[in-house]
């Protein structure tokens, strides 16, 4: 089963169908297993250009996951370096074209524009947040990495990752639900107070 919901957590393994995506709602905490493809700015530009020229994409994205990441180089003996998400908004202009090709899951950070949100609904797909700046934690869930296209782009090349328990939170679902908007409304005017205890004006540790 591609989607298994149990004890408040959702396990998800691609490829996904429309029916699988229908089970995911904004705010769901999901752990991914299996294959994830990476792509960010430069790779998106090339993929969308390929589509415009009616050329095939470097991989079959139907039912698959794309993760917006440009990792640090792996230390010797490691699979990958730090591997957290990059800002998704920059990929907005390229996203609808890939969703139309059958891409089902996108993982990044930050909000999406209205055009992308509508494309998610139209194509029955979801957008999730991985925790930005948690690249060391996320790195540990990645069990293998192969560069499969655009090797010349270095950190921006398309990589095929195999993951076990990669954590993410559904931000935009196929029903138009948006966690970022709902969350902000729910917690508006409930601040943690600004009376942080002032520490002695010590220098930062040398």
């Amino acid at each position: 089963m591609p989607i298994v919901k149990k004890d408040g957590e959702t396990r998800a393994t691609p490829p996904f169908t429309d029916e699988d995506i229908a089970q995911l709602r904004a705010g769901d905490h999901v752990r991914f297993y299996g294959t994830i493809y990476t792509a960010r700015d430069a790779a998106h530009r090339r993929m969308v250009q390929a589509l415009q020229e009616r050329k095939p994409l470097p991989m079959d994205i139907r039912g698959q996951i794309i993760y917006y990441v440009g990792p640090t180089p792996a230390r010797p003996g490691r699979v990958i370096g730090s591997a957290g998400p990059t800002t998704s908004m920059r990929l907005d202009p390229f996203t609808p074209a890939l969703l139309e090709q059958g891409l089902k899951v996108i993982i990044g950070k930050g909000g999406r524009g209205s055009v992308v949100k509508k494309a998610l609904q139209d194509n029955k797909a979801v957008y999730l947040l991985a925790i930005g700046g948690a690249g060391a934690l996320l790195s540990g869930t990645i069990k293998s990495m192969d560069v499969i296209a655009y090797e010349d782009l270095g950190t921006e090349s398309i990589k095929k990752l195999e993951v076990e328990g990669f954590p993410a939170i559904v931000a935009c679902d196929m029903y138009g639900g948006d966690l970022l908007l709902a969350g902000k409304e729910a917690y508006r005017d409930q601040p943690a107070l600004g009376d942080y205890v002032s520490v002695p004006p010590a220098e930062k540790a040398g």
Binding site: L129, I131, G183, E185, Y187, L193
Partner: peptide
């Protein structure tokens, strides 16, 4: 310093929260 405390409270009243999932 007082303005810093005032602004910190107002920033946290926005509700954006950690990673913008909503929060204090």
């Amino acid at each position: 310093a007082e303005f810093e405390r005032e602004l910190l409270t107002k920033v946290n009243a926005l509700g954006v929260g950690p990673q913008a999932v909503g929060g204090s």
